[in-house]
Design a protein around this nucleic acid. Structure first.
Lengths: 340, 340
DNA sequence: AATTGGCACTCAGGGTCTTGGAGTGCCAAA
DNA sequence: TTTGGCACTCCAAGACCCTGAGTGCCAATT
């Protein structure tokens, strides 16, 4: 239905509009790009594109602007797979190279990603469905408080304070810890709840209360592990691109604070393995993010668990660059985590 | 120099301007407040206030707007110490009531504070200058990696991954852990560096490399403890009050991401013990926050260490409410942390 | 000495009008 | 299928005016 050249026209419209933030007209196209045809011909092509609702005119007789559908087609078929610049590659290396610990890696990653895309970057912590318990630690803080620390093979550490009625001496704590580790160590986080119940029922009389408290705390911690967690950076970039939003960026910033929204969004985006995918404009309307686009990819944590990372910005964004950046960072991160 | 009534006029100018975001004129004042004098009289008072640079006119012949100096005087002398609304009090109770662990308490606190002030809220983690080491834990992850976990009496837990050359068996790890805890347990975080050095030098031949790696990691962790840490919430509120900023909120959002700036700012604000203080408008210019005000207060962590929390927003903010909210939340938080 | 009504003056903001120019759609010719 | 030509549309920017809110000042009053 749309000719080959028309698609080429769509491509330059997207590119120029993203670059200049101004509707692009037929004359500007023939001037800036060598199509070898006249402006009138381009106009015919544009009429086709408009027919297909790939572009639209903000008002009668002004240049054209890509529609969400236009961006979608651009992303799916036209975006040239341009490699990252050497400077960007190097930034990834040096930035992520010397990180220590999971928190640190993810923090560096999200900052890096926001820097090379000039968008809001989001990195999801590895979900712990498949994570295995590495170690449980109990630490007495005061007579009536102790700390439970849970460590998984993904390198994540979670702690929680437990109030206890009666002081517990060190050997007893040590014994309990031994039991917990013997039963939980190496097991899947998913299966933990049943095991905790078993431990609770088989505890001796005198320990009963203590064990109940501790297992309760641990159960909550396991629950929390299932709750996904995010890190984010570059929210300031939204203010830079304020003009791309009708009204205010307030709802967007709010959605960002409600991490739940982002997690749902990440969850619902179809991402093929190792691929990068985009969710564009109105496709996100149900999340209150109808004027934004999200580029996301999977990465693989050390435990082999998949998690996601990506960038979010106004629909008018540099898809080529952002797709490349997200892909590269996701790969590098998987690599990095796999290595360790 | 300025009469009693003039100060009263300043007060209503601040109040009305904060409420309406419109320059307030002499006529509006006599209409909305019962001064019992004519508009002309108010004008005379306003001339006094302008003379003292407490208010200014955006342009010749329009209402007046408080200057930074005017806000300062308002905060220091005029802000009525209105108590929080019962709803707000209750929100504090129910919101902070059932928190578990330090991270959780601070997260809840910062969200609460941003909610009842409609500003950006910031809570500083207790600084660890005076924190004491409660426990050091070593956990083998793989043959070549182990995890060091550092726990202080403030309830904070930090972990780090250490790469090691040679596998270490459990008993050896246990012995090292024992030594570390014996020497470090109960000592001040400040003094840790020297102790770590001592441990390193007195280690046996075969342990040397391992000890070096572990103590190095711990030393870095102690260092990090000295780095202060923040949690933040309510950045979206800045977008709501966008109009109060000339140009964009971009620089403000950026400063917020550079937590260093906020820590310096917190550090330099003079806060009297248990008091609340404000830093207004241009007073923050050197931090790139010349159009914002910060209300801050100290709170006391469980270890007795002081840390800060506060809110940040446009210079045109509801100081009365925000001062009260920050004070109340700081008190409640100290109480809560002290109790546990 | 403080307060007040009166009055001339200023200026931002909103409305209307005009104009220029960029861009389109369509058509007939190549 | 492409192209030049042409009439048409409509936004954006400028010029202009006008209104109204608000001021500063002064002379009269308390």
């Amino acid at each position: 239905m749309v000719s080959e050249r028309s698609l080429e026209v769509l491509r330059v419209i997207v590119q120029d509009y993203v670059a200049s933030r101004e509707p692009v007209g037929s004359k500007a196209i023939v001037e800036r790009h060598s199509f070898g045809v006249s402006a009138a011909t381009i106009r015919n092509d544009m009429a086709q594109l408009e027919e297909e609702e790939l572009i639209s005119a903000p008002h009668t007789s002004s240049g054209r602007v890509p529609t969400d559908k236009g961006y979608r087609l651009f992303v799916d078929q036209l975006a040239d797979r341009k490699p990252l610049s050497p400077a960007q590659r190097e930034a990834i290396e040096t930035f992520l190279g010397q990180s220590v610990g999971l928190d640190d890696v993810l923090l560096r990653t999200v900052r890096l990603l926001s820097q090379i895309t000039n968008q809001v970057a989001i990195v999801q912590y590895p979900s712990f469905a498949r994570a295995q318990v590495r170690h449980v630690e109990l630490v007495g803080l005061t007579e009536h408080r102790l700390l439970t620390v849970l460590i998984t093979d993904t390198g994540r550490v979670e702690q929680r304070v437990v109030e206890i009625e009666h002081p517990v001496d060190a050997p007893r704590l040590e014994r309990l810890k031994g039991r917990l580790n013997a039963r939980l160590g190496g097991t899947n986080v998913d299966a933990s709840s049943a095991i905790l119940d078993a431990i609770r029922t088989e505890s001796e009389q005198e320990d009963e209360l203590l064990v109940a408290r501790v297992t309760h705390a641990l159960a909550e911690q396991f629950d929390e592990y299932r709750h996904d967690k995010l890190v984010m950076a570059g929210a300031a970039n939204l203010a830079r691109t304020e003009d791309d939003f009708t009204g205010s960026i307030y709802p967007v910033l709010e959605a960002l604070e409600q991490q739940v929204v982002l997690l749902r969004l990440f969850g619902e985006m179809a991402v093929d393995l190792n691929g990068v995918s985009a969710s564009i404009g109105r496709e996100n309307a149900s999340f209150g993010l109808g004027e934004t686009s999200i580029i996301a990819s999977n990465y693989r944590s050390s435990a082999g668990e998949l998690a996601r990372l990506g960038v979010l910005g106004p629909t008018r964004m540099d898809y080529s660059n952002n797709l490349a950046a997200v892909r590269a960072v996701a790969r590098y991160l998987s690599h990095q985590l796999g290595d360790n």
